[in-house]
Amino acid sequence: MRPVETVVGPDDGGAPAASPSIIDGAELFMSVIERNNVTISGSGTTPMIFAHGYGCDQNMWRLVAPAFAATHKIVLFDHVGAGHSDLTAYDREKYSTLEGYADDILQIAEELDLEEAIFVGHSVSAMIGVLAAVKNPDRFSKLILVGPSPRYINDGAYAGGFNRSDIDELLEFQQSNYLGWSAHLAPVIMGNPERPELGAELTNSFCRTDPEIARQFAAVTFLSDNRDDLPKLTVPSLILQCQDDVIAPVHVGEYVHAHTPRSTFVLMEATGHCPQLSAPDETVAAIQAFLEV
């Protein structure tokens, strides 16, 4: 095994592992663990990192992750801006690309000293995992890509499934939905810069997301193009593809499979975009089968 590289440095554009903040003159270091609301469980030693996609938080894995608790060390986290992550750590610059999120995963792995981890990423986090594993393959032994898409927007012969105008509409939609979601329109209408948590709290208890952050995450997710990153992946991967998935259609999953070395493709019975919620048993079985190989 090669020595573990330092994944964060002044040259790679990542934020420092612990970002100092000064409150009343006392210097506090916020750990990566708090920043990403990392929770660890399970009685196994092989680490298994579950990464949620756009729109929700680590709760997305609650029907799947427990199935691996007896055999693995389960690492759940929220992307910065989602769930119970530290919203003050949100940096528009850093999170304007998926690399910013990939760097966070590498920082979590470094902080917890995880080696050869199994990474399970849903939707956009499948690509975030690919980016992290390309950057530092030693951290990962296997990747499970649930509903991956390297590019959501149609581009010439490539059919991602969406037009740019669809995404623009989604961003508008996102905004109007925060209006609709909150019984009180005030937080969004008034902007409420001094109480950002108000809008997030009213929105929902599970998929808490700050509206402005959700908007940028949506833009970054749906406008990214990571097709060129697929061939660089050296870690073995499993592509879990659902039927009738409007977000990541079957032919996109096949594209990922065709362009990713050492990848395995499984077309599930499950429909929609969230098999970990709609068909947790089938999802668990597919992952287990792949891990046993």
């Binding site: 997305m60 969230c274 709609s278």
Partner: peptide, 10 residues
């Protein structure tokens, strides 16, 4: 997109 990513999970 919203239904799949947010509505249904919720």
């Amino acid at each position: 997109i919203f239904y799949e990513n947010q509505y249904f999970p919720l």
